[in-house]
Design a binder for these strands. Structure first.
Lengths: 222, 222
DNA sequence: ACGCCGGAAATCCTATACGATTTCGCGCCG
DNA sequence: CGGCGCGAAATCGTATAGGATTTCCGGCGT
């Protein structure tokens, strides 16, 4: 839990972290109402820090807010997940192409390690671990993207998606192994200095494939 | 001024609208401090609505906030403009390709009208008008993008860029005419049902060209 | 039995007050 | 004359209180 971190940072920060982690970790499901008074009593602060924390969560899309009615945890349905993931595919594709020239040999090593770790986790059916290593793999590239604005957008979308990543990954188990192979291929492209357009197309497809697999599985499940 | 609109919407909304329009219209330049007490007295409300309005502006990136120090209008330098514009190019390219099949004949008419109006405005050296019609042109496409997440991202970035659009347009005057031609070409592609990839590439380049022109001009001006 | 209405409870919104933190200027010392 | 420390002013952060709005439930009429 990262909820303990905020101490010399004001109550509002503390409340924000707590509520955020609760939402991300799924402690309170979609539609759950966030009542200011109740939270204030529970967290032993006044209503205002809670209020501001909730407004921040609203601005970042974690909760829906209605005037004179309060906030409730934003429902993340399958459609909005696909849409966010698609957006990410487009941006990450471009970001990967931009980052390619700035990826060092050390970076490649880190990515290879992450990919191996992901493969190992998959063999042990450790979905959460695999997901973490997957994030680490792409995180290396993100960090090398020279466009700060895209970096921010990527992390923002990523955080929102994270609240469901374990669910998704276990929903389409076969996708994990394919991802590992695609990662390897991407590594090769980066190492051999492939064309930017090719890198972008591949990185984009890599993520779009996940979306497609998810939607296929979902259509079948209905 | 859209500042009058908020009446039965709570003071906090009203304050938010006022401050936002001030920033967007450049009434208070970058670095300008937003002092809560002063604004509260000026707008005849207590400090709390002002406080929340400022936090909202912070979450949306309009102001920078430092704890125990207050907020100041976020400076929008040339680099961050280019970065945001580049992000927009990537997203809008994809959005245009996605929207293509959903663009009706009436939509095409609207776009043609907007492009003609833009051309006319340019002939009269009406930079602001040309910029507005340019927005209208792309707005038609945005509205037809089936991915709601991308639509939100686009409008969000667009709003941020708008605070400088007049400045930029007058900074690279020759770009306007070229834009009109590119718009016409894009219209042709949409009308003849060009491939998605081609549409995306062209729409992206259309915006990236603007970035390139701006950076070229800037490099020359230094 | 069903729908409408009024009041009470819950919750949110705003105002005011006070404590905490930072910043700036003044005086002091080297 | 310049650097340093201290104190006051400015500003922010949090708490508490009361007014406003919404929601919910029980009673009444049809």
């Amino acid at each position: 839990m990262a909820a303990v971190a905020a101490q010399r940072q004001g109550k509002q920060e503390r409340v924000y972290s707590i509520l955020r982690s609760r939402i991300v970790e799924g402690a309170c499901g979609p539609g759950h109402r966030l009542v200011i008074d109740a939270l204030a009593r529970e967290l032993e602060v006044s209503q205002m820090p809670v209020r501001e924390a909730i407004r921040r969560l609203e601005a970042e899309g974690w909760v829906l807010y209605t005037r004179n009615q309060g906030a409730q945890v934003a429902p993340i349905d399958a459609v909005s997940w696909s849409e966010a993931m698609t957006t990410m595919a487009v941006l990450e594709g471009y970001a990967t192409a931009l980052a390619a020239p700035h990826v060092s040999r050390r970076d490649l090593d880190r990515m290879r390690a992450a990919n191996r770790a992901m493969e190992a986790a998959l063999r042990e059916l450790d979905v959460a671990g695999a997901s973490t290593h997957n994030l680490a793999f792409h995180g290396v590239i993100h960090a090398r993207c020279p466009n700060a604005h895209i970096r921010r957008e990527l992390t923002s979308i990523q955080e929102r998606l994270n609240s469901l990543r374990n669910t998704i990954f276990s929903y389409i188990p076969a996708r994990g192994e394919i991802s590992v192979h695609e990662h390897a291929e991407l590594l090769a492209m980066l190492e051999h200095g492939a064309e930017a357009a090719a890198i972008e197309a591949f990185a984009r497809e890599h993520k779009l494939n996940t979306v497609a697999a998810f939607e296929l599985r979902r259509a079948g499940a209905v």
